[in-house]
Design a protein around this nucleic acid. Structure first.
Lengths: 228, 228
DNA sequence: CATAACTTGCTGGATATCAAGCAAGCGACT
DNA sequence: AGTCGCTTGCTTGATATCCAGCAAGTTATG
């Protein structure tokens, strides 16, 4: 019998192992600070194997991003369909969607960090991250549709969506810096649930206030002005 | 007379020039992607000068961070004093403080990007970013004090403060990716004002809802639960 | 005042390290 | 024998760090 110490040779498995390793390392340390040696070693393979399967380092990076975005696109598609078909009241649908978004991101720290490196390095989305546009637009139209807004309020909706993303995203990036500096423990078992609820409450109260302001007369002045 | 083409030798000015150049380049491209040659050239000096003044690349980086944090500490201190002494109603004070925070960050893209690189690279705040703790704690106590909360609600306050930071911070990092993907134009002359107002409205409505829930009976159920 | 002795600000070559990419090689299986 | 999966040796380019040195001052000394 052949030794079981060495895995049998399997191109597909090795490819996936390299993708996994690269995703983890690129997410943790960024593109520039990850060497192909590191990737090979983390995949349990040699220095040269990443190049063998993916060509250049850039190409490997593209492959990693592509795999991540595919997952996100799918999640948005599914979430959108479910939300629009549910027939539940708007607030319930939104609360569910926001909560799921928080959980989705929290379960994918690699994805979040990858995008963050990307945003910092590139400056603009010209290169790889062009995928983002499509997903964001799809989410935005679903959001506008669910709120039953006319097109004129798309800017307002975009602000809200931007806020939802920011609220869900930020604590994951700064879990060990700002979050901890505020005395919160991102590793505590109930942190995620608390955060999820907080984000949902904040967004819903914001939307309620906004629609109250739009419908009724001027109950309170539009909002307090900051400059004296 | 001596030629005015060449600046007279001035150690302090050169030091500052190098700090400025390093801050800009580290913020734009990150630590790993900035060479000391780049820094020297950007400062109008030679390849070797950064090392001459600051020793190692790491030390130069530390000096840049230190200078940034000093500015932030000062801003927090001033803002805190002014807010607590103003005697205005809580909502006005908060709206002012939040708006100022948004503007403060928007005026300092270098700072925001620097911290973001730091958060991504380090993972934890052990090393350089330990400064953060102090500033965040000071802001938090001011916030709790302004709201007149008991210590038990510090966790709640921290969530709100975290949200304020996230809302103000995120669009600056993702101005060319997510913000643009949502159809917003971060370079439009009124984007900052709109965003400022949105953040203020969102935070204030959230706080109003929270205090209504705390004071009155259960007007609406605590909040809609996301899981089916 | 003049010259020498010394300091300070800054430069740019030399060296060493490290990583990407290429190509030759090697073992296993068909 | 040939192909596939993978490894290893080597080259080349980039860059951090060390250091010798120059030039513009500054102080001490005649």
């Amino acid at each position: 019998m052949t030794s079981t110490l060495f895995r049998e040779r399997d191109a597909l498995r090795s490819r996936e192992a390299i993708l996994d390793a690269a995703e983890r390392l690129f997410a943790e340390r960024g593109f520039a600070n990850t060497s192909l040696s590191d990737v090979g070693a983390a995949a349990g393979l040699s220095r040269g194997t990443p190049s063998y399967f993916f060509g250049s380092k850039q190409d490997l990076y593209r492959a990693v991003l592509e795999r991540c975005f595919a997952e996100v696109r799918e999640a948005v598609r599914v979430g959108k369909e479910r939300a629009l078909a549910s027939g539940q009241p708007t607030e319930v649908v939104l609360a569910g969607a926001v909560g799921e978004y928080v959980d989705f991101l929290a379960a994918r720290p690699n994805f979040v960090r990858l995008i963050e490196w990307e945003a910092l390095s590139d400056g603009d989305l010209s290169s790889e991250a062009g995928h983002h546009i499509g997903v964001a637009q799809e989410a935005l139209t679903a959001f506008v549709q669910e709120l039953g807004l006319r097109a004129e309020l798309a800017g307002e909706a975009a602000q809200f969506l931007l806020s939802i993303i920011a609220l869900s995203w930020f604590p994951l990036i700064h879990r060990s810096t700002i979050v901890r500096a505020l005395g919160l423990d991102a590793d505590a078992p109930d942190f995620l649930a608390r955060r999820r609820q907080h984000v949902i409450d904040l967004v819903l109260s914001g939307l309620r206030a906004r629609s109250a302001q739009a419908n009724g007369a001027v109950a309170h002045p539009p909002s307090t002005s900051p400059t004296p």
